[in-house]
């Protein structure tokens, strides 16, 4: 069975809302110290930051399926992660943004993401390849 996880440790909690760093205009510090706004981040920023960090490794996580959750306004996304294509399930709010390689921020409900975070998003779809992280030491 696939591993069930959450992007930020605990199960999604709709009442708590999304993390503040996804709000448009949030200042993000890259591994080399450069500051960028969240909406200006590019694929290369993540890739280069992971290379600089030494401890983290970028994985390609392909969206295998997107299903409704019992939790209101949430979905369960199944990813195929890394070279081993490990199956990982994540329960997130529909507006939760993922960064898709070569495309940028994407969510299951882009309109809601834009409404809540002012962050422009594309529609996250099956087959999209998202950026995810693992610790190199886990390998």
């Amino acid at each position: 069975p696939p591993t069930s996880t959450s992007p930020h440790g605990s199960p999604s909690s709709p009442s708590a809302g999304l993390p503040p760093f996804f709000m448009k205009g949030s200042i993000i510090q890259l591994a080399d110290g450069e500051l960028k706004r969240v909406e200006d981040l590019r694929t290369e920023d993540f890739v280069q930051s992971a290379e600089v960090s030494g401890e983290l490794k970028i994985d390609s996580s392909t969206v295998e399926s997107i299903e409704c959750s019992r939790t209101p306004n949430a979905v369960i996304i199944q990813f195929s992660v890394g070279e081993n294509k490990a199956q990982v399930c994540v329960e997130v709010l529909v507006e939760y943004p993922f960064f898709v390689f070569g495309q940028g921020w994407s969510s299951c409900c882009p309109d809601r993401t834009t409404q809540l975070l002012a962050l422009s998003c594309a529609k996250l779809s099956v087959g999209d390849v998202c950026i995810s992280l693992t610790f190199k030491s886990l390998k």
């Binding site: 591993t3 996880t5 760093f21 200042i27 993000i28 990982v88 994540v90 998202c130 992280l133």
Partner: peptide
């Protein structure tokens, strides 16, 4: 314009989910 003393700065890895598969061996 950004006011440096009041604007939080977040690390880049906060934005990316850690999707660590369970090791099968």
């Amino acid at each position: 314009n950004v006011e440096p003393r009041s604007v939080p700065v977040f690390p880049w890895h906060s934005l990316v989910p850690f999707l660590a598969p369970t090791q099968s061996d």
